[in-house]
């Protein structure tokens, strides 16, 4: 059916929903991002207390010590809702697919020196489990955090970590001629090798943290700021310096993802830190509390990867974190 009518009769009577008008002002149109995230989480008149945590409401601001008048202020500068998120990741997976195809076609890992493939086995493959821990922790943020803008982005972040764990699996299989024994060896290192134990202890300790914002700072800011660039920037540069591009091709996603998702991490922490002095104090306390643990966990890996140059790499990693902390209005770490 097609109808020819005067446009006067189909003028909109309003531009957006009341709950968005209250945020953006009258007479304005909301973006699809705003429609997709704001006020989705229920805030009141809950029917029943959780049987798994009866002292709290189903959604409860008391699950973190961070205080915000409006938790919907924790928006994502990438403006990801489901559509743009999956479309962006689909493009990246296309690219990753062709990178892995190239690695296999040219047999690039077969021409890599044993020294470097050994280092990948010892220092990179066990990171699969670190990513799995990051998936676990971000899923916690998505379930028990407060406000749809934050929790929806946390779920995407969790799925990204699962994706990275799977890309690392593909990389490991490519290194080992598709023989999955390399995965078992990596897991054995993760479970028993003294090199990995401080990190595994940190990851397991993180998994039992109850305050979701503290966990966000520990996992997504502190731990990631060291491990992700260590493995996928500094280590990658060192492998790349030998002239073999296999590792670079297999980890392109991780570098892109880190630069992109750090914008979300920083924006959420900055919003919390600038909202109230108490928040800033709390964030500084958390950074101070967890930084020595992160350092303790990462230092042996830096040393194993870089030997004599370890302290230069550590210095660069710390400096990059301090640059971010400064922009977030937080105190530097030593």
């Amino acid at each position: 059916m097609s109808i020819d009518i005067k446009t006067a009769n189909i003028e909109p009577v309003r531009l957006t929903f009341d709950h968005l008008e209250a945020r953006i002002g009258k007479g304005k149109s909301a973006t699809r991002y705003q429609e997709a995230v704001h006020d989705f989480q229920m805030t009141q008149n809950f029917h029943y207390r959780p049987t798994w945590e009866p002292e709290m409401e189903l959604f409860d601001v008391r699950r973190t010590k961070i205080q915000l008048d409006d938790f919907d202020a924790l928006t994502d500068p990438r403006q990801y809702y489901y559509g743009p998120y999956t479309i962006q990741r689909a493009k990246q997976q296309d690219n990753a697919d062709s990178n892995f195809a190239l690695i296999e076609k040219r047999k690039l890992f077969a021409t890599m020196s044993g020294e470097w493939t050994d280092k990948i086995r010892r220092l990179i493959v066990p990171l699969r489990h670190v990513e799995w821990g990051a998936n676990t922790n971000n899923t916690y943020l998505s379930g028990y955090g407060y406000g749809a803008p934050f929790t929806s982005a946390a779920l995407m972040h969790a799925m990204d970590r699962l994706g990275i764990a799977q890309y690392l699996t593909r990389l490991a299989l490519a290194v080992n001629g598709q023989d999955p024994v390399i995965l078992d060896e990596g897991k054995a290192l993760w479970l028993d090798d003294p090199l990995w134990q401080p990190l595994r202890r940190l990851v397991e300790d993180a998994m039992v943290q109850k305050d979701w914002f503290e966990l966000h700072v520990l996992q997504n800011l502190l731990q990631d700021s060291q491990l992700v660039p260590l493995a996928f920037v500094h280590f990658d540069e060192a492998v790349g310096a030998t002239g073999n591009v296999a590792f670079t091709l297999g980890t392109e996603f991780m570098r892109e993802w880190f630069n992109e998702s750090s914008r979300w991490v920083d924006a959420t922490i900055k919003t919390a830190s600038s909202a109230k002095p108490e928040n800033r104090q709390l964030l500084n306390d958390w950074v101070a509390l967890w930084w020595p643990r992160v350092q303790e966990a990462v230092a042996p890996l830096v040393l194993a990867a870089f030997g004599a140059e370890a302290s230069a790499v550590s210095g660069a990693l710390t400096a990059a974190l301090n640059l971010r902390l400064g922009k977030l209005g937080l105190e530097a770490v030593a």
Binding site: T86, I87, A90, Q92, Q93, M159, D160, L162, G163
Partner: peptide
Amino acid sequence: TMDAYWKYQAEKERKL
């Protein structure tokens, strides 16, 4: 796997 999920779902979102 996640990459397959992203791929299928993105296709559906584009059409929708």
